[in-house]
């Protein structure tokens, strides 16, 4: 196809459409989720994710995951070049199934937390974090 201005616009629009269709991110994220769940269905329920609505800087975004009955919680940043962020496994002496950390986000995107619960089921939740671009670049 000859690259004309019109074609470029069409291609751009197609790219935007393609990017927006699988809302929950890329194939890599799908593989990671499948590896974590063993292909089991992921519902909603006992999993909470707290992340800022607007992150002042994508380099350092504080997040907190918690659940009442999770044995393990995986966090994914769906818009990062590699979506995996961290997996928390709670041991016998964990007083709560909760943890906080600081993460990197490459841009505005969904952060997803998937928990494996004590009963063997999987639940997930997501939160959109807007990452702002700085001021004068200084």
């Amino acid at each position: 196809m000859e690259l004309t201005r019109r074609n470029a616009i069409v291609m751009g629009a197609a790219a935007i459409l393609a990017a927006s269709l699988p809302v929950r991110g890329n194939a890599a994220a799908g593989d990671l989720i499948a590896a974590f769940t063993g292909g089991a269905e992921v519902g909603t329920g006992d999993i909470r994710l707290i992340a800022p609505e607007i992150a002042e800087n994508g380099n350092t975004v504080p997040i907190e995951v918690s659940s009442d009955t999770a044995v393990e919680i995986m966090v994914l940043a769906m818009g990062n070049p590699t979506p995996n962020v961290a997996t928390f496994k709670f041991g016998k002496l964990a007083a709560s199934r909760a943890a906080s950390t600081r993460i990197r986000l490459a841009g505005t995107q969904d952060v997803v937390a998937i928990a494996k619960l004590e009963d063997g089921s999987f639940v997930q939740t997501a939160s959109t974090v807007k990452v702002t671009i700085g001021g004068c670049g200084g």
Binding site: N59, P83, A86, F88, F90, L93, A99, R104
Partner: peptide, 12 residues
């Protein structure tokens, strides 16, 4: 064990 965390490059 209290907690065991797998960390990826997306940790700050």
């Amino acid at each position: 064990n209290v907690i065991d965390v797998t960390m990826e490059p997306a940790i700050s």
